[in-house]
Amino acid sequence: MTTIQHDSASVLSLISPALRADLIAMVREDYWPEMTDDQGERGVDQLAAFLAVAASTTERATPGLRVDLFWHAAILHTKPYADFCDALGGFIHHVPDRNNPEHNPAEGRAALRRTAEMIRAAGFDADPEFWPVDGAADCTQSYAGCTDSPNSGKSE
């Protein structure tokens, strides 16, 4: 696994305070009403870390369910999302695969664990509330095959 180190402060600064507030509000309104302000702030940070890693690896990166909620909100902000991706080296596609009959929950947990490891190796914190890797099949979107597109810029 090759992981590029990132200056986490620089990556986090790519998300404006206004966009950060809107992402938190959207996730709270649409998916997670009991989310605290602290969880929202940490969620945006974990999204930024995930996307930075996804942009800099050829391996599939798989978000935890809560990170994926923030990713869904970010994608709806097409211009700032595209600008964020461009700053990281290229567009990061969201690739759902909900109808994969070969889905294996153990493989999903392993993919989530690898992604959290890549995030740490890239110089970010992997917040355990957003990367539940031990026996948390219901807490990962990876069971549905939700991933980034390796080699950003290429569609799958």
Rank of each mutant, 00 (worst) to 15 (best):
A121S: 05
L88S: 02
V53R: 00
L12K: 12
I15T: 08
A110P: 07
A54C: 03
Y81A: 07
D37Q: 15
E41R: 15
G40K: 07
A111Q: 02
D30Q: 12
I119W: 01
R109Y: 10
R98A: 13
T57D: 00
L23S: 06
E107K: 04
S56N: 12
M26H: 09
T58G: 12
I92P: 02
I92W: 01
P101C: 09
R109M: 15
R109N: 08
L88M: 03
R114E: 14
V53G: 01
F91L: 14
Y81C: 06
D125K: 02
I4N: 08
L23N: 00
E102Y: 12
S56A: 09
C85R: 00
M118N: 06
L112T: 14
R66I: 07
I24D: 06
L47S: 02
I4D: 08
M35Y: 10
A111Y: 01
A74G: 02
V44S: 02
A21K: 14
R113M: 04
R66Y: 09
A49Q: 07
V95Q: 12
D45A: 12
E41F: 12
G64H: 02
E102K: 10
A121E: 09
H6K: 08
T58K: 11
E29I: 10
A9Y: 02
T57L: 03
R109F: 08
V11S: 02
T57P: 09
Y31P: 04
D86E: 14
Y31S: 11
W131A: 05
R28D: 00
A121P: 05
E117P: 01
P17S: 11
H77C: 15
P101K: 05
F130H: 09
N99E: 15
T78D: 14
T115R: 11
A61R: 13
D7F: 03
D30E: 11
R114C: 06
A61Y: 05
P101W: 10
D83N: 14
R28I: 04
D22K: 13
N100I: 04
G108T: 11
L23P: 01
D38T: 06
V53T: 02
G108A: 13
R120K: 12
M118Y: 04
D127Y: 03
W131E: 03
L47Q: 03
T58N: 12
A55P: 03
D86S: 09
A110R: 15
M26K: 10
R66C: 09
I75L: 09
L14Q: 05
D83Q: 14
H94M: 02
E34F: 07
A111K: 01
E29M: 08
K79W: 09
E41A: 10
V95G: 14
R42I: 14
P33G: 05
P33W: 00
L88G: 00
D7S: 01
A116S: 08
E34A: 13
R42L: 15
D86I: 06
N104V: 10
P101Q: 08
M26P: 03
A54L: 03
A9T: 13
T115A: 02
V95T: 15
C85H: 00
I24T: 13
D86L: 11
A25S: 13
G43D: 04
L76F: 08
F50S: 06
A52Q: 04
M26G: 09
T62V: 15
N100C: 07
D86F: 08
G40P: 09
R20D: 06
A54N: 10
P63E: 01
R28E: 05
